[in-house]
Amino acid sequence: MSFDRRNFIKTLGVAGITLMAADTFGTIKKDNKGNVEFYGMLYDSTRCVGCQTCETVCAESHGLPAPVGVPKSGVIRKTDELHRTVVNSFKTSKGDVFIKTQCMHCNEPACGAACLTKAMYKTKEGPVIWRGEKCMGCRYCMVSCPFDIPKFEYHSSNPKIQKCTMCNEKIEKGGIPACAENCPAEAIKFGTRRELLAEARKRIVQNPGTYVDEIYGDQTAGGTGFMYISPVPFKELGFSTKLQNKSYPELSKGFLYSVPSVFVLLPPLLLGIYEATKKNNSKESDENE
């Protein structure tokens, strides 16, 4: 035979490696350890002036209605199915501070792990996006998201999940998200997560009086793509202090890992008991006869 099994396997292997290589040597940036680098955004609340330009351009670029209301201390505006991002104002020990709310684009998103159709999906570039052709509208992503970001169109017969997608369609074409692009105060910076973390640390180190020594999103929920630096501790700014530093999918991993073992171990055990009791029974009936 000219094309024996060994050769066939070899060919398969080569083909496989080529495919993998094509996958990993794409356009995505990598750090020196070879890890894929996600894009993210850094929000500097010392720079934000609460002008709501980000809210307006976000609504325009996704065909949603214009923002309602203005940031005011004591009033919490929430994102909903018509508003993917909002800016709120907080009275703090260092005066009014603005905070923008939107999807955090977690490194290991709970919504993505929850989704049984991979409609909620973290792309290789970093944005967590929603794909309508896969979604069955079960809203398990909403149950799971620790930041309560996915919003559901309850009053539609063809409902969609609305959430910030980091303007994924622009990123794919080499662009940057609308909010980061249009922020007049340069409070939102777009870049790879590694660059942004370095930038955030630099700003904190160079201006120790201006910032608290904490980057929100560095560790929270296993690390997020959207990160914050601020002049006051984050709990003054309405951030939940309950969130864990481990990623949320980690919580159901143990259960999911146990599934294969149950599937392998339980049926033979049941079969064994079945055989044992069957023999027992026939013996008994023999004795009775």
Binding site: L116, A119, K134, C135, C138, N158, P159
Partner: peptide, 15 residues
């Protein structure tokens, strides 16, 4: 389910 027509997606294997 909000989008019940997609309920076959996790069953038929396209996602």
């Amino acid at each position: 389910l909000g989008r019940p027509w997609n309920v076959i997606n996790p069953i038929i294997g396209n996602s």
